[in-house]
Computed example of a mutant assay.
Amino acid sequence: MGKKVVTFGEIMLRLATPGYLRFSQAKEFTATFGGGEANVAVSLANYGLDTEFVTRLPKNDIAQSCIMDLRAHNVGTKEIIFGGERVGIYFLETGAVARASKVVYDRAHSSISTIEPGMVNWKEVFKDAQWFHWTGITPALSQGAADACLEAIKVANEMGVTVSCDLNYRKNLWKYGKTADEVMPALVEGCDVILGNEEDCEKVFGIKPEGFDVTATGGEVNSAEFESVCTQMMKKFPRCKKMIVTLRGAINANHNTWGGVLYSDGSLKVSKRYDITHIVDRVGGGDSFMGGLIYGLISYPTDDQKALEFAVAASCLKHTIYGDFNLVTVAEVENLMKGDGSGRVSR
């Protein structure tokens, strides 16, 4: 199995309206669990990697149910710390065609938002780790969460653990008096691999291609523009060895195009594009990309193109799976990479 991958962040109770009901129509909700870094850990555990998810949860039955769910997916939970008041919740209304999906957060005063540096023994957590992954969601929760995340990155850097981040800008979360551009640079400075979408680099760091609006591309790849974003990011964060941008073209809520680019060693790799015509659940799509990317970079260390193609294929499949977690196998992803997207019955 090799050395473990550690992820750190908030896991929430997800309450989704059944089918395509609006919040105002729903008389019941489907309960699952999810959250950026937990979603990545589940992907990696599915691919057979040893994973450890670090968070802070209250001592109650909902938290216990959450831990049981993680364990059921072979995610390590022994470094989870306990304290605080509650498990965060998010409500999901799934959109259809011209109506977008909606998320309502109920995560104020959750256990992880009251975490402080010193609560997690990072030296112990990383002692047999090869990789540490965090997202921009964690430092958005509170000053304490931002400080604990920075503490983890610094220890990982000292111990020679590869650090990756998904910028994951969420404007609705930055509520404690600091902005993303004040907090994020110090954390991103410690990263070897950075993932963003077209808007993250602009919203967090003000980095965008000259005279070009990436949101108006419909997800089409213009290599020069994306290369410009990647080179600017690497100039700002010289530790970064690989910069990856996901490309989502939203035709409507059920139909997206999907792909990505990876910039490293002065060259831009462009993935094949997938046309996802009947989306089942796109929540966790970016996390499934990150899970695929980490697996790809670990498994194909000399082939960035293959790592990128694995990430895009894995996240393409995630759009067909209900819930936050991407429950696919390496074989299924590799089949799609080879071009088998027919959906024929396997028997």
Rank of each mutant, 00 (worst) to 15 (best):
G160F: 03
T138D: 05
I153T: 08
E124Q: 14
M159C: 02
K123H: 15
A156Y: 13
W131M: 05
C149D: 08
V125M: 13
K154G: 00
W134N: 01
A152P: 00
A140K: 02
I137F: 10
L150R: 02
T135P: 07
Q143S: 13
A146C: 03
I137Q: 08
I137H: 07
D128C: 10
V163F: 07
A146V: 06
C149H: 00
A156H: 12
L150W: 00
E158A: 11
T162P: 00
D147Y: 11
V125G: 12
G136N: 07
L150S: 00
G144N: 10
G136H: 12
K127W: 09
W131I: 06
K123L: 09
G136C: 12
D147L: 13
V163N: 04
Q143R: 14
I153Y: 03
T135R: 03
N121V: 09
A145I: 04
E124N: 15
N121K: 13
C149Y: 00
M159Y: 11
C149K: 00
A148N: 02
V163Y: 03
K123D: 11
F132R: 05
S142D: 07
C165A: 15
A140H: 05
I137R: 09
G160C: 03
G144Q: 06
K127F: 13
D147I: 03
V125P: 06
S142E: 11
A148S: 15
A140N: 11
V125Q: 14
V163Q: 02
